Amino acid sequence: MFVLTIDQAGSRRAQDRIPELLELLRPIPTVLPWERSVGDEAQGVVADPPDVVDAALLCLRAGGWYVGIGIGGVETPYPSSPREGRGSAFVAARAAVDRAKKTGDRAPLAVEGPDGAREAEGVLALLGRHVMARSDAEWRILDLLQPGMRGTQTAVARSLGITPQAVSKAAGRAAWHEEQAVRPAAARLLAWSDDGTA
Rank of each mutant, 00 (worst) to 15 (best):
G64T: 05
L160A: 14
A117Q: 01
W192R: 14
R36I: 11
D16S: 05
E41K: 05
Q8R: 11
K102M: 10
G151Q: 05
L22A: 11
R106K: 13
L124G: 00
G73S: 15
A185K: 12
V97G: 00
G116L: 08
A9Y: 11
A95H: 11
Y66Q: 06
L32R: 03
R134Q: 10
A89E: 01
G68R: 12
E23F: 07
V131M: 13
V45H: 04
P19I: 03
I18V: 14
A100G: 04
S88H: 06
F90D: 00
S159A: 10
V111I: 08
L126M: 15
T163V: 07
R36M: 14
E84N: 15
D48K: 12
A100R: 03
D51A: 08
D54V: 09
T154W: 02
A187G: 10
R140V: 05
S159T: 03
W65V: 00
D195C: 02
A56Q: 07
I69D: 04
A9D: 05
L24C: 01
D195T: 06
S193F: 00
A93G: 01
R13D: 03
A198R: 15
P184K: 15
T30K: 10
R26V: 00
E179C: 14
V91N: 11
V111K: 01
G63S: 09
E20D: 14
S135R: 07
V182E: 14
A125M: 15
